[in-house]
Amino acid sequence: MNTRSTVEDLFRRRTQPVGDGHLDWTGYRNKKGTATLHWNGGTHGALRVAYRIRTGQDPIGYAHATCEHPGCVAPEHAADSAVTPRRGHHTGPINRQPSSSDDQVKTLLREGLNDRQIGRSLRTSPKRVARLRAELELPSFHNRPLTFDDRWDANTEPVDGGHIRWTGRLREGTSPAVHHERRYVSPRRIVFERLHGRAAVGRVLPGCGYGPCVRAEHLEDQPMRDQLAKQYAAIFGEVAA
C-alpha cells in the first residue's frame, strides 16, 4: 500500500455508489458484519471514518447510518449516536432519571467545559452532554475550545433600554463571572478593557442604573467614577455659589 495514502483514501477505494446518495461497502466485514478497515496497523470502523470525512472529527458515541439502505456507509448518511440517537435504540434505562438537570449541564457547557469534564462533575453521560451541546448550537469542544466571545454570546441577552443582562454564573449571587484562560474572571472587566484599550482600575460596575448590565459602553471603573463625582461637584458647586 502507498504509505502516503490515508484511511479516508482506503475508505473511498472500498465503497461503491448505488444511487440516491448511498454507498455500499465492498471491503472487509468482521464476524458481526461490521464494515471495517485495516490501516496503519489499526482497525477502523467504516462508519466512523465516514463520519470523520463529513464532519472533520470523530464521533463521541457510536457512528451509525441515518438512512434505511442496508449497510450504507455514505458520509452524508453517517451520524453520531451521542447527537442523533440510532433508530430503535434507547439512550438509557427506561424510566431512570438523570442525576443532574439539563439546566445544570447547559450552565457548564456555556462556561466552556468539555463533555467529559461535565460528565465527571455531574455524574452524567458525556453522550447526554454532547446532545445538549448540539441543542445550544455550541461548537464541539473536540473541534476547538470555546472562546470568550462564545461564552459571552451564550450567557448574555439584550433587554429594554439598550442594556445587556448577564445570564450566566454569578459570584456571591450578584457579580458576573466567566471561565476564561483557566480561571473565573469578570466579563465586565474584559469587555471594558476591550472598549477602552486600557486596564481597568478598581471594580468595573454599570453606571447606567441597571444592576445586571454588562454592556461595555455602560460600564465604569474607579477613575471614571471619581471623574464623574468631580464633575457633579463642580456643577452643583457653581449653582450653590
Rank of each mutant, 00 (worst) to 15 (best):
H196L: 12
V214D: 10
S121Q: 15
C67Y: 04
K106D: 12
W166M: 04
F148A: 06
R188L: 00
R189Q: 13
P126D: 14
T26K: 10
P187Q: 10
A216M: 04
R14F: 02
P187I: 03
R12H: 12
R120G: 10
S125V: 05
E181W: 00
V239G: 09
R29N: 12
R198K: 12
G209C: 10
A134C: 00
K106N: 11
G207N: 05
G92L: 00
V239N: 09
D103I: 00
I118L: 04
A134F: 05
I164W: 04
R151G: 02
W166A: 00
S81Y: 08
R128M: 05
G27F: 01
A200R: 04
G71N: 09
R52H: 14
N40S: 15
S121H: 14
D103V: 07
R188T: 01
A229S: 13
H180V: 03
Y184I: 02
T3K: 11
D20F: 08
A50W: 01
A78I: 04
W25C: 00
E135L: 04
R116S: 11
H77Y: 05
L170M: 09
R189Y: 02
P17R: 03
I118W: 01
G112F: 01
E217Q: 13
R12D: 15
G88A: 06
R13W: 13
D221L: 01
R194E: 15
I164S: 01
N40L: 12
S81W: 05
R194T: 12
V83M: 04
A241I: 08
Y28V: 06
K127P: 08
H180K: 00
R215C: 11
Q97M: 11
E137D: 15
V204E: 11
T3S: 13
A63P: 11
T6V: 02
H180D: 14
S5V: 09
H22E: 13
L23M: 11
N155M: 07
R203V: 07
R14D: 14
E137R: 12
P59F: 03
L228S: 13
E135G: 00
R169V: 07
I164M: 10
P85N: 09
L205A: 04
E172M: 07
P93D: 11
N114R: 05
E76I: 07
D160Y: 05
G119E: 11
P139C: 05
L138V: 06
E220D: 12
G92K: 00
K32S: 15
D115I: 02
L195I: 01
P93I: 09
R189P: 07
G33S: 05
Y232F: 10
Q16A: 14
R183I: 01
P70W: 04
A200K: 04
L108K: 04
L132Q: 01
I235A: 15
A46R: 02
T107D: 15
R110T: 13
P223M: 08
A35Q: 07
T147W: 00
Y210S: 03
W39I: 07
N95S: 11
T26D: 15
D103L: 06
V49T: 12
R144T: 09
R96N: 10
